[in-house]
């Protein structure tokens, strides 16, 4: 176990697909309880970064330390500390809501008897308590995302990774999901890394990371980005910094 004050630490990360450089020398640290938004256009390298953080891809260079464990060499311990909501649905459509949650709990070695009440409470809070036996296929997109979030939090992770979780959701569901994650930060001091290309989701972030063409263009507070780019809104700041990069290519 590597001693580190950061809950998530990425150093000198590099990943390429043949001659295409997807991530180039990524360095960043996430502190406990931070809500960090990873902003970047499509193809910026966000999903590649998430795939490496979740151990599904191996980096060419560098490493990610999660809760003190290397995802490369101690991935079982590192994975224990993270909850993940992927960009694409990863829920079994043919099973019921409860069956999906139970399946995840068992994969994490959790005692279902102890967890029963907690699952029920979470479903109730998310207004899904009357749909526990429904097949996931019958739920709306927003409800499926809620189930995925409940599932990601079942094992009390230290870091929550959300890879473009609002894709395909209506504005109300988007707002609800964002609100839920912000309340987790407030109430449980949960660290969240939220990847998106929608700038409004970054407004309440403690830190934002602008990623484009596999490179970090900016890392800091939202108002610092505005100051740096001399723009009035975060949205303008984001477009300015990513445009600049595009022009230089």
């Amino acid at each position: 176990m590597v001693k580190n004050k950061n809950i998530l630490s990425i150093s000198n990360l590099k990943k390429s697909y043949d001659d295409f450089l997807a991530l180039n020398n990524i360095n960043l640290n996430l502190d406990i309880g931070e809500y960090v938004v990873l902003l970047g256009p499509n193809g910026a390298g966000k999903s590649t970064l998430f795939s490496i953080l979740t151990g599904m891809l191996s980096p060419d260079l560098g490493d990610c330390i999660i809760n003190g464990y290397s995802i490369k060499s101690q991935n079982v311990s590192a994975l224990k500390a993270i909850g993940i909501v992927f960009q694409q649905p990863t829920i079994d459509m043919e099973l019921s809501v409860l069956e999906n949650l139970n399946f995840h709990a068992r994969l994490h070695g959790l005692n279902l008897q102890n967890l029963k009440q907690e699952i029920f409470n979470e479903l109730k809070v998310n207004k899904l308590d009357n749909k526990t036996e429904n097949k996931v296929r019958t739920l709306s997109g927003g409800e499926r995302r809620k189930v995925e979030l409940i599932r990601a939090l079942l094992h009390n992770p230290k870091v929550l990774l959300m890879d473009e979780p609002t894709v395909g959701l209506d504005p109300k569901s988007r707002k609800d999901l964002l609100h839920k994650v912000l309340s987790l930060k407030k109430n449980k001091n949960l660290t969240t890394l939220w990847a998106t290309h929608l700038v409004d989701e970054a407004e309440n972030a403690d830190k934002i990371i602008v990623l484009n063409c596999g490179k970090i263009l900016f890392l800091g507070k939202p108002n610092e980005l505005q100051k740096k780019t001399r723009t009035k809104s975060l949205s303008d700041a984001y477009f300015k910094i990513t445009e600049k990069k595009d022009e230089s290519l």
Binding site: T54, G55, M56, S77, L79, K80, T90, H108
Partner: peptide, 12 residues
């Protein structure tokens, strides 16, 4: 269906 991702990110 994406379920494989959940399996492969299980801490086992």
């Amino acid at each position: 269906m994406g379920v494989m991702k959940i399996l492969l990110t299980t801490p086992l």
